[in-house]
């Protein structure tokens, strides 16, 4: 089955007006979603990316430059990602459509390329 990476775009902390009770409810909904999709064999892996500690490296040898980033000036940051399985892109969208993240952030879905040519 084809695999997809789903990137979660988050709002920065300052833009999140949310109470402790609401945070707990959100975590429960996220976790229940993941558990269900894992039980159905749809989600393989999920990870959080560490906020604010990325680097962008460009150029080889002497031309090499390292800058902070890649998110210094963007409004949304990529908070984490999932590797999921789906029949095709439409099915992947269908799978993610029930994700609670969509209530306050966007998801970017990309298919993972494979070598095998049938």
């Amino acid at each position: 089955m084809p695999k997809f990476i789903v990137l979660a775009r988050d709002l920065p902390d300052a833009a999140l007006q949310i109470s402790p009770e609401e945070m707990q409810r959100a975590i429960v909904r996220y976790t229940e979603w993941t558990d269900e999709m894992k039980a159905r064999g749809r989600v393989h892996l999920s990870h959080k990316l560490r906020d604010g500690e990325g680097r962008v490296v460009r150029g080889a040898g002497d031309a090499r430059s390292v800058t902070d980033g890649p998110f210094a000036e963007v409004k949304e940051i990529i908070g984490g990602f999932w590797i999921i399985e789906a029949d095709d892109l439409d099915d992947a969208v269908e799978t993610m459509a029930s994700h609670p993240h969509l209530e306050h952030g966007g998801l970017e879905i990309r298919e993972i390329e494979v070598l095998d040519v049938k």
């Binding site: 109470s19 402790p20 009770e21 707990q24 429960v28 976790t31 269900e36 894992k38």
Partner: peptide
Amino acid sequence: RSSGGDGAARSVAPLVDHLFRRC
């Protein structure tokens, strides 16, 4: 309302009601 069977029930189990508010 946990939808994922045993696994789901277990994974949110440490979050007792109002844990965040109480914390």
